[in-house]
C-alpha cells in the first residue's frame, strides 16, 4: 500500500467523519431549539399539506429567490440543478448495483443521468461564475461578502473545472478510481490513481466535505428548519406553547 493511498484513505475517512458528525450536531441544535411562537411569513398555508407544498416549491424551484432577484435565481438554480445531476452521475463511482441497500430504481436513475451529467458540469460552473460575478460587480453584494464567501466559490469552481478537465482533456483511469472508493467503503483499500488533476479534484472535494457543517453551507439543512417557511398558519386554533414558555405559566 503506497503512502499516497494511505494518506488519501485517511483524509477521506476524516472528511466523512467531519461531515456527518458536524451535520448531525448542527441538525440536533436546530431540532432541539424550540420555536416558541408562530411566525410563518404570511400569507402562509393553513394546513400541513400546504406547508409541504410550500417547502417543495422553495427547495425545488427557489420560489422566494425567484420573487426577489431573477439573475441570482437563474445562476443559483443552474448551479444547484447542475450539482444535483453531477452528484447523481458520480454516485456510480461509490456504489455497486448489487449492494443490497442500493434500490434498483436509484441505479436506473444514475444510469439515466450519465449523459446529462457531463453537460450538467458546465451548467454548474457557469452558474457559479454568474454568482461570483454578481458578488464582485454588484456593490451591495460585494459589501456583504467576506473573504470566505469568495473562497467558497473558488473552491467549488475548481472542483468543477478539475472534474471537467478529467472528462475532456486529461482522462483519468476511472476503473481504478472506482476501485479506490469502493475499497474505502468496504474497508478493503485499493491503490489510488496518481495523476495530478485527479488528486487535486478529490483533495478539494474532501475540503468541501470537511467545512460543510461549519460554514454557510448549513443553508441546506437550515431551510427545512426555517419557522417562517415550515409553520402552519393556525395560531388562533391551536396554542403553540414551547417547553420553556410553559414554565412561565406556573
Amino acid at each position: 500500500m503506497s503512502f499516497l493511498t494511505v494518506t488519501y484513505a485517511l483524509i477521506f475517512y476524516a472528511a466523512t467523519a467531519l461531515l456527518i458528525g458536524g451535520l448531525a450536531w448542527r441538525i440536533t441544535l436546530f431540532a432541539k431549539a424550540p420555536a416558541p411562537l408562530k411566525i410563518p411569513t404570511t400569507p402562509a398555508p393553513t394546513t400541513q399539506t400546504g406547508v409541504v407544498l410550500r417547502m417543495f416549491r422553495e427547495v425545488v424551484f427557489f420560489e422566494s429567490l425567484f420573487k426577489s432577484t431573477k439573475w441570482t435565481w437563474l445562476f443559483g438554480w443552474m448551479f444547484h440543478i447542475g450539482l444535483l445531476l453531477v452528484l447523481l452521475r458520480h454516485s456510480r463511482y461509490f456504489i455497486n448495483p448489487d449492494w443490497f441497500w442500493v434500490p434498483h430504481i436509484f441505479w436506473e436513475l444514475v444510469e439515466l443521468v450519465q449523459p446529462f451529467g457531463i453537460y450538467a458540469g458546465f451548467v454548474m460552473v457557469a452558474g457559479l461564475a454568474g454568482l461570483w460575478s454578481r458578488r464582485i460587480l454588484v456593490d451591495r453584494v460585494r459589501y456583504i461578502s467576506a473573504l470566505s464567501d469568495h473562497l467558497m466559490l473558488l473552491l467549488i469552481i475548481l472542483i468543477g473545472l478539475s472534474g471537467l478537465t478529467m472528462k475532456f482533456i486529461a482522462h483519468t483511469d476511472i476503473i481504478s478510481v472506482k476501485a479506490f472508493f469502493i475499497g474505502l467503503i468496504t474497508f478493503n483499500w485499493q491503490a489510488i490513481p496518481t495523476d495530478f488533476i485527479f488528486l487535486l479534484h478529490i483533495s478539494l472535494v474532501a475540503t468541501l466535505m470537511a467545512i460543510f457543517p461549519y460554514s454557510k453551507l448549513l443553508h441546506a439543512p437550515g431551510i427545512f428548519f426555517s419557522p417562517t417557511r415550515n409553520q402552519v398558519d393556525n395560531p388562533r386554533e391551536r396554542r403553540h406553547l414551547s417547553e420553556w414558555a410553559k414554565r412561565l405559566e406556573q
Binding site: A33, P34, S68, T72, S145, S226
Partner: peptide
C-alpha cells in the same frame, strides 16, 4: 436566546450572502 429560539439559531447559520434581500 440561541437555545430558546430556533429562528435565531437557524438564521444565523443559514445565510449564504446571496444578496437577494439587500435592496428590499
Amino acid at each position: 436566546l440561541l437555545g430558546k429560539y430556533r429562528s435565531l439559531q437557524v438564521y444565523l447559520d443559514s445565510c449564504v450572502k446571496c444578496g437577494a434581500c439587500t435592496d428590499k
